[in-house]
Amino acid sequence: MLIGKQLAFRYPHHNWIVRNFDIAIAPSEVVGLFGPSGFGKTTLSKLLAGYLTPTQGQVTIDNSPLSDRGYCPVQMIFQNPELAVNPRWRIHKILAEKQSPDRFLLDALAIHPSWLDRYPHELSGGELQRVAVARVLNPATRYLIADEMTAMLDANTQALIWHRVLDYVRSHNIGLLVISHDAALIKRVCNRAINLMQVGTSR
């Protein structure tokens, strides 16, 4: 169980971005999160994935706090894959930063072998996002946070990526948090959804 308890965050001398937020995600559960811009959705995902340390509250996995050393069992997939890969690395090096994904996973995400020797700017956004997804789908990952993962992609690539991620999440018992503006998408992929407008979080 991934639990964020009474999470609050602000930068020093600034207003609260997130306040009094509780969330619990069980393994193999797919939870949607939506709400207007400025409600701290990205901040929340960064708190849960350990990119930011909460000003108050705590993130725990099975009752032990999230460690900031070693591989983080909560992995985040960003909206812009172009920013999430080193522009000077070839694709095979990017994929192998944790461990080389197996052939089967690459095939499932339709990652063509000819891409492996290229640089990120030689791939389109949809192709690059599949690479970014493959990078974090490995046995050490127990929770995934998809922050507007497919907002920049066309409908076909969006559906393709979601099907593969959902397959993987189900077969490996991974908990998934889906952050999106797209109500139809949340309805389609999630078991339940949280509307930030209705819970106790405020700016």
């Binding site: 960003f78 890969v85 000077r88």
Partner: peptide, 26 residues
């Protein structure tokens, strides 16, 4: 502060490894 370096920390890479592979070539 780039996404890919932050992500590299979360993938369990050490600061030294990141300096060597991400920073230096840049």
């Amino acid at each position: 502060s780039s996404d890919y370096v932050q992500l590299s920390y979360k993938l369990g890479r050490s600061p030294f490894w990141i300096a060597r592979h991400h920073m230096l070539p840049h």
